[in-house]
Measured scan of single mutants.
Amino acid sequence: DVEEQIRRLEEVLKKNQPVTWNGTTYTDPNEIKKVIEELRK
């Protein structure tokens, strides 16, 4: 469920934690926001 994935990513973003997505770890909040934007398409 895309909405659920977006919610999880936004939670991690608020906590300033790194996100691992498709084998890539993102630590930059701007990169995480880009992943969220991609999911919304």
Rank of each mutant, 00 (worst) to 15 (best):
D1F: 12
D1G: 11
D1L: 11
D1S: 14
D1E: 11
D1N: 12
D1M: 10
D1I: 08
D1A: 09
V2F: 12
V2Y: 10
V2H: 07
V2K: 05
V2T: 06
V2I: 14
V2R: 07
V2S: 05
E3P: 06
E3A: 13
E3R: 13
E3I: 11
E3M: 14
E3L: 14
E3H: 11
E4N: 09
E4V: 09
Q5L: 14
Q5W: 15
Q5K: 06
Q5N: 09
Q5R: 04
I6D: 01
I6P: 00
I6E: 01
I6L: 06
I6W: 05
R7G: 04
R7P: 01
R7K: 12
R7M: 08
R8I: 15
R8Y: 15
R8W: 15
R8A: 14
R8G: 06
R8N: 07
L9N: 00
L9I: 10
L9W: 06
L9F: 09
L9M: 09
L9V: 02
L9A: 01
L9C: 03
E10F: 11
E10N: 06
E10V: 11
E10D: 04
E10K: 05
E10T: 08
E10G: 04
E11Q: 09
E11R: 06
E11D: 11
E11V: 06
V12H: 15
V12A: 15
V12F: 15
V12S: 15
V12I: 13
V12Q: 15
V12C: 15
V12P: 03
V12T: 09
V12L: 15
L13T: 02
L13Y: 06
L13E: 02
L13V: 08
L13H: 03
L13A: 07
K14F: 13
K14V: 11
K14E: 11
K14C: 09
K14T: 12
K14I: 11
K15Y: 14
K15L: 15
K15T: 14
K15I: 07
K15P: 02
K15H: 13
N16G: 15
N16P: 05
N16L: 07
N16H: 11
N16V: 04
N16D: 06
N16W: 10
N16F: 13
N16Y: 05
Q17R: 06
Q17L: 15
Q17A: 09
Q17S: 09
Q17V: 12
Q17F: 15
P18Q: 10
P18G: 10
P18I: 11
P18S: 13
P18V: 11
P18L: 06
P18M: 08
P18Y: 07
V19A: 08
V19C: 09
V19P: 03
V19Y: 14
V19Q: 02
T20N: 15
T20W: 15
T20K: 09
T20F: 15
T20Y: 15
T20S: 14
T20V: 15
T20Q: 13
T20D: 14
W21Q: 02
W21G: 02
W21P: 02
W21K: 02
W21E: 01
N22D: 09
N22F: 13
N22I: 02
N22W: 11
N22A: 06
N22R: 07
N22P: 02
N22E: 14
G23Q: 03
G23N: 04
G23F: 03
G23L: 02
T24G: 03
T24A: 09
T24P: 00
T24W: 06
T24S: 06
T24M: 10
T25R: 04
T25S: 05
T25A: 04
T25D: 04
Y26E: 00
Y26P: 00
Y26M: 09
Y26V: 03
T27P: 02
T27H: 10
T27N: 10
T27F: 09
T27Y: 10
T27G: 03
D28Y: 03
D28N: 08
D28E: 10
D28V: 03
D28K: 04
D28C: 06
D28W: 02
P29T: 06
P29I: 08
P29L: 07
P29W: 07
P29V: 08
N30I: 13
N30S: 13
N30W: 12
N30F: 12
N30M: 12
N30V: 13
N30P: 02
E31F: 05
E31R: 02
E31M: 09
E31S: 06
I32T: 02
I32M: 03
I32L: 09
I32A: 03
I32Y: 02
I32E: 00
I32V: 07
K33L: 13
K33I: 12
K33H: 09
K33P: 01
K33G: 05
K33V: 10
K33C: 06
K33A: 12
K34W: 10
K34D: 04
K34I: 10
K34Y: 07
V35N: 01
V35Y: 04
V35E: 02
V35S: 01
V35T: 03
V35W: 04
V35P: 00
I36R: 01
I36V: 04
I36P: 00
I36M: 06
E37R: 07
E37H: 08
E37D: 12
E37I: 08
E37K: 06
E37T: 07
E37Y: 07
E38Y: 14
E38S: 13
E38L: 14
E38I: 12
E38V: 08
E38W: 15
E38D: 08
E38K: 08
L39R: 01
L39H: 01
L39E: 01
R40C: 04
R40Y: 08
R40S: 04
R40D: 01
R40L: 08
R40W: 09
R40P: 01
R40T: 04
K41A: 13
K41N: 13
K41T: 10
K41L: 13
K41R: 12
K41S: 10
K41Y: 09
